[in-house]
Design a protein around this nucleic acid. Structure first.
Length: 244
DNA sequence: TGGAATGTTGGAAC
DNA sequence: CGTTCCAACATTCC
């Protein structure tokens, strides 16, 4: 699950803010939640932060995680279940950890692509020491582009016609700033499409056989240090040379 | 229908 | 001690 989906989850959970947890099932490693008030939720990148009286949980959905409200999955045991009178929230296949208020304070929302506190200038500062790295790795760096996932990476690079293995420093003049703005803009586009349930049909390069621009064959290849699969058109996304 | 994939962590290896 | 690599986890989709 990528950042914009987490923002949607916070919106869906907002109806339970300030409500008392009347029932709950939690992993043994966590405190009980029954009787606590669900104070609120927010996201930072791909992290979902749930605040209860006397307990803060951080949920990460990783690749396969999901949540449901009042519609449990059949034959699946949720990792965490929250009851609010007649309503139930279920969290499946996710990593859940209790965290401290101090840790939440330390999250830098200036890098969170969906946050009001996001700052282009801050991101550009963090990019300065990354000029030798490949753009496919840099975009996936959660300390710089918090919430950006592999789908977003591939779509953003295709739209800007950048080869995933382009060295960041090969982007001259205003190009890095443009890429950073693309990331911010595409995050909100992703969010709108996801909410409207039309995300997949708006993919241009992800899991496509042919390039929508030239009709050429889309290459799927693990790229960069991270070795995450990049989908790209080698004709339309030429690799840049790292020079003036 | 087997294999790949919206992701991260922790530990081994070097 | 830093880095790099790999397994582990777990579920949906094509």
């Amino acid at each position: 699950m990528e950042g914009p989906s987490l923002v949607i989850s916070v919106e869906e959970l907002s109806r339970f803010f300030r409500k008392k947890v009347t029932e709950s099932t939690t992993p043994d490693s966590l405190k009980g939640l029954t009787g606590r008030t669900f104070k609120g939720a927010r996201s930072w990148g791909k992290h979902l932060i749930l605040e209860f009286t006397g307990c803060i949980l951080r949920i990460h959905f990783l690749m396969f995680g999901s949540y449901r409200i009042n519609q449990p999955r059949e034959n699946r045991i949720p990792k965490l279940e929250l009851g609010f009178k007649a309503d139930r929230v279920y969290f499946y296949s996710c990593a859940i950890k209790e965290i401290t208020a101090e840790l939440v304070e330390s999250y830098d929302f200036r890098t969170d692509l969906m946050s009001d506190a996001w700052e282009e200038k801050r991101v550009l500062t963090l990019l300065k020491p990354k000029q030798e790295k490949l753009v496919c790795d840099v975009l996936m760096d959660q300390e710089i582009f918090s919430g950006l996932g592999n789908i977003m990476k591939n779509e953003i690079l295709f739209r800007r016609r950048l080869h995933p293995e382009t060295v960041l420093g090969a982007l001259r003049g205003p190009e890095q700033k443009r890429l950073v703005r693309d990331c911010r803009k595409y995050s909100f586009q992703f969010y709108e499409w996801k909410k409207a349930n039309v995300l997949k049909r708006n993919w241009l390069i992800m899991r496509k056989k042919a390039c929508p621009a030239c009709g050429g064959k889309v290459v799927k290849k693990p790229t960069g240090v991270l070795k995450r699969l990049s989908h790209f058109c080698p004709k339309c996304q030429k690799k840049r040379l790292n020079q003036e």
